[in-house]
Simulated scan of single mutants.
Amino acid sequence: MSDSTVPGAHSGRRIVHIDMDAFYASVEQRDNPQLRGRPVVVGGRGARSVVAAASYEARQFGVRSAMPSTRAERLCPDAVFVAPDFARYRAVSQQVRAIFARYTPIIEPLSLDEAYLDVTTHRGGLETATEVAEAIRSAIRNELHLTASAGVATNKLLAKLASDANKPDGICVVRPQAVDRFLLPLPLRYLPGVGPKTQQRLDALGLQTVADVRAHSEAQLIEWLGRTGERLFQQAHGIDERPVQAERVRKSVSAEDTLADDLPLEALAPHINAMAEKTWRAAQRGGYNGRTVILKLKTADFRILSRHASLGTPPDSARALADCATALLDRVGMPAATRFRLVGVGMTNLQTTAASDAEAEVEQHRLFD
């Protein structure tokens, strides 16, 4: 397929994906000069801790986010471990988003450190999407003393892939006429949703690059891979019709913690209380409450369990949330000898707190559906 016939290549949209470089670690290095140039790992030490972020100096040793901290220590014995400060990271993230807002109101945050921007019509007085991306990167560098990478393309898929192409502190522009030139050589592991297990299946089929996928029909890929084959066909052809959504609907709020020691079920209540408190504070900050309370547990052998209760009236305090989550222990149904390594408490079926208050009087008589 030629570039000129790639579906959606000439959609008229101009999408920018901004991805902060090693965000948490970079904030730590910025704020503490003694950390600059050193391998920094944001996260705790110990057998039950994981890496939240790693500086590029640490990444040179193979350290990556979500890696067990013990492995990170083995890979990089000289790494400096720093406890995460998410309140500070959130504050810096808000400063970054204020810079985005100078150029467009159509901003879709994906996390604290990345976002999509639709700059099809709003460009803050600049002529092109590329100029917007460069202006944003320059403002982040000059005002916040951090770096960001950017991808510019006609859809979200291509823009995100492009932002990874020249990291750190780089920009990649995928123009409509150059989509094939950009996509075809890419290893399939770069595509969203292609994890290790999917990669094994693709390797078995002799599919390693986007060009390999393009050699097969959609019907053939679906026969081999089911819905994964359909998604892969779309991605390999650069097709992505998703709009940038300025107001993303939050689906849940939660907190979880890996315990210092594996504990029996009857010892989990204090930890449930602590996670309920964290979840409640996060929900209150966002102006949310939830009709469904979720208790998440992970056993010592890494089996994940989830129990939930749908409420007529959302909890009105952290204590009420904790009580509901604790009551769900009765539904776990595991042998008495089972030990647990992780506890989480969450809420879903979210609504704004204003809506919760208005409906509470009507449904006070209900406890569980």
Score class of each variant (00 low, 15 high):
Pro168Arg: 09
Asp240Gly: 10
Ala22His: 06
Tyr56Ser: 02
Ala354Val: 13
Thr121Glu: 10
Phe100Val: 05
Pro270His: 09
Leu146Met: 05
Asp257Leu: 11
Cys172Leu: 05
Arg248Ile: 00
Ala53Cys: 00
Ala101Val: 04
Ala236Leu: 01
Thr258Gly: 07
Ala58Ser: 04
Val174Leu: 03
Ser252Glu: 03
Leu295Ser: 03
Val194Arg: 03
Ala25Gln: 00
Gln29Arg: 09
Glu241Gln: 07
Asn273Tyr: 08
Gln208Lys: 12
Pro39Leu: 07
Pro168Lys: 09
Gln220Ile: 09
Asn32Arg: 14
Arg214Pro: 03
Ala91Lys: 14
Ala98Trp: 04
Leu146Trp: 00
Asn142Tyr: 13
Val179Cys: 06
Glu256Asn: 04
Ala178Lys: 12
Ala133Asn: 09
Ala178Asp: 15
Leu329Arg: 02
Glu223Ala: 15
Trp280Ser: 05
Ser306Gln: 13
Thr147Lys: 11
Val249Ala: 13
Val51Asn: 05
Val194Gln: 01
Thr104Phe: 07
Pro192Asp: 06
Leu191Arg: 00
Ala255Phe: 02
Gly8His: 09
Arg331Asn: 11
Val63Met: 08
Met334Cys: 10
Asp257Lys: 12
His271Asn: 08
Glu241Asp: 11
Tyr103Gly: 04
Ala98Val: 06
Glu277Pro: 04
Ser93Met: 04
Ala215Ser: 15
Arg74Lys: 14
Asp240Tyr: 08
Leu202Ile: 10
Thr130Glu: 15
Ala282Cys: 01
Asp316Pro: 03
Gln245Glu: 10
Pro105Lys: 05
Val174Lys: 03
Met334Ala: 06
Ala52Ser: 15
Thr258Glu: 04
Phe182Arg: 07
Asp357Ala: 14
Ile107Lys: 09
Thr120Cys: 01
Pro314Lys: 01
Gly344Ile: 04
Gln364Met: 14
Asp301Arg: 14
Pro314Trp: 03
Gly44Tyr: 13
Val63Trp: 00
Gln220Lys: 13
Pro176Glu: 04
His122Gln: 11
Phe23Met: 05
Glu241His: 09
Gly151Thr: 03
Tyr89Phe: 15
Gln94His: 13
His365Phe: 14
Tyr103Lys: 08
Glu256Ser: 11
Glu277Arg: 01
His237Trp: 10
Asp203His: 11
Pro243Met: 05
Arg97Ser: 10
Ala83Lys: 15
His308Arg: 14
Gly125Val: 15
Arg36Asp: 00
Gly12Ser: 08
Leu146Cys: 05
Gln199Tyr: 07
Phe233Asn: 09
Leu305Pro: 09
His237Cys: 02
Asp369Trp: 12
Ala115Asp: 08
Glu266Gln: 12
Leu263Glu: 01
Ile99Asp: 08
Gly43Trp: 02
Ala336Cys: 02
Ala72Val: 12
Asp164Val: 07
Asp78Met: 10
Arg319Glu: 14
Arg90Gln: 15
Ala337Thr: 13
Ala54Met: 05
Arg74Ser: 08
Glu256Cys: 03
Ala282Leu: 07
Leu161Ala: 01
Lys298Val: 04
Glu363Trp: 14
Gly287Lys: 06
Ala300Gln: 13
Gln351Glu: 15
Pro84Gly: 06
Asp180Pro: 10
